[in-house]
Amino acid sequence: MDVGQMQRQWIDYTKSLFLEGFLDGQFLQLQQLQDENNPDFVVEVVSLFFEDSERLLKDLTFALDQNGVDFKKVDAHVHQLKGSSSSIGAQRVKNACIAFRNFCEEQNTDACLRCLQQVKQEYCLVKNKLETLFRLEQQIVAAGGSIPTELSFSG
């Protein structure tokens, strides 16, 4: 595959992530912050997000597995995950967190457990999608190309 084909593939793939709701405009803002002085900014931020999310999901799994669930603690973890997912534009994770917090307020353990599964699923999906996107970027750069900077949603 030549560089042009890879770049077109990158554009189509990125568009699909927005159209399917995995990402929102906040991710575009992150891409706009990246330049030749900070070529790895998006990857760095998203890697931090992965590390944080995995820790939080582990903490949430543990917290909801206790006999007397501390819903204040659960809510604090979900709050943090909602904040970081919205900051990188991981829209579906953020939306799953919103539903989760409502059930925390109701102190509904069963519903919280279902929400945790939903959040985990959305997190895994967006992680796989972003890793695919970053692999494609590495291939473009390795082939001597540059990552497209303009995304048009009209076509």
């Binding site: 803002q29 912050l33 900014f41 931090l48 997000f49 944080d52 970081s84 900051s87």
Partner: peptide, 11 residues
């Protein structure tokens, strides 16, 4: 949140 700090700083 370290993710938020990094993004806001850059922004």
């Amino acid at each position: 949140d370290a993710v938020v700090r990094k993004i806001h700083m850059m922004m």
